[in-house]
């Protein structure tokens, strides 16, 4: 299922003195089965954009095509509900949406809303707690007796329970410590690979964008500033710096080395491993040259 934005504009409080244009002239395609990162500053339009992905917001002009479905400003809310099952959104601090007495009930909440039989929902809940790295015995516990990190996993399981074709992650690791962050990111990457789940990650971390995404969309002041592979996006650090965004530490290092050594490093240097290899090569060339 592809998602295609065509000339999308979104104005909050349209036709009132408080009107504010949050998005304009957005044309992007999120292809089925890809992992896309959306980066940009707070207020760049990222979160408005992501709410268009499952019809939580409708464009004030332009169209959003979600698979077969075309969404325009005039669609009635009733017709949008089926989209919510196709595209699951994990909002920032998703643990704030928990409310049931037990973890099991909370995970089943979404599927039951879409008419999944209770038995099947429960079976799925059992599978999912393990998938998100929790023990099966948490199912009977109250979600509010768990630690912050565990609550977040439960909330994520609650969204995965919808068995969406696409998952949208709005800073899924905010507030977690480094280990928790890494575990959650690895989990989503595994899901993306194993289930060919189309994944959209909204993040401030250029490292995560470089490491996981096939493609990066850069948002700036309400519109798309650039879209491309991590290699393409991070090729020109100065241009990104001009809109106040940084590049991954590895790219910064590469840039510094090129400047200091007066050489060009061909590798994109998107991960530590790639960068280490590139530097190793740089050093071996010197030795060859010396001989």
């Amino acid at each position: 299922m592809d998602i295609v934005f065509e000339k999308v504009e979104h104005v909050y409080n349209a036709r009132s003195p408080f009107a504010r244009r949050a998005l304009y002239d957005v044309n992007v395609t999120i292809a089925d089965g890809t992992y896309v990162a959306i980066v940009g500053h707070t207020g760049s339009g990222k979160s408005t954009l992501l709410q268009h992905l499952n019809g939580l917001l409708q464009p004030t002009s332009g169209t959003v095509k979600i698979g077969e479905e075309t969404i325009t400003g005039s669609k009635r809310p009733k017709q949008l509900k089926p989209l919510r099952k196709k595209v699951g959104i994990v909002f920032q601090f998703p643990e704030h949406q928990l409310f049931e007495e037990t973890v099991e009930k909370d995970i089943c909440f979404g599927p039951l809303n879409f008419g999944v039989p209770e038995e099947e929902a429960k079976r799925k809940a059992k599978e999912l707690v393990k998938l998100v790295g929790l023990n099966e015995d948490v199912l009977a516990k109250s979600p509010f007796d768990l630690s912050g990190g565990q609550m977040r996993r439960v909330a994520i399981a609650g969204v995965l329970a919808l068995e969406p074709e696409m998952i949208v992650l709005d800073e899924p690791t905010a507030g977690l410590d480094p280990r928790g962050r890494k575990e959650i990111m690895e989990m989503f990457y595994r899901l993306h690979h194993e289930k060919q789940l189309t994944t959209v990650l909204v993040t401030h971390s250029m490292e995560d964008a470089a490491q996981y995404a096939d493609e990066i969309i850069v948002m700036h002041e309400g519109t798309v500033w650039g879209q491309g592979t991590p290699e393409e996006i991070f090729r020109d650090p100065e241009r990104l710096a001009a809109i106040g965004l940084s590049v991954p530490e590895t790219v910064k290092l590469k840039q510094e080395l090129e400047r200091r050594f007066g050489v060009t490093i061909p590798s994109p240097c998107l991960t530590i491993e790639q960068t280490a290899d590139a530097i190793k090569q740089l050093f071996s060339k010197v030795s060859v040259h010396d001989q």
Partner: peptide
């Protein structure tokens, strides 16, 4: 603001606040 956020999160889980 918080109310709006929670409503959106629950709407994404299939809750229909309008009917």
């Amino acid at each position: 603001e918080e109310t709006e956020k929670i409503m959106k999160a629950q709407a994404a889980r299939g809750v229909d606040f309008s009917g």
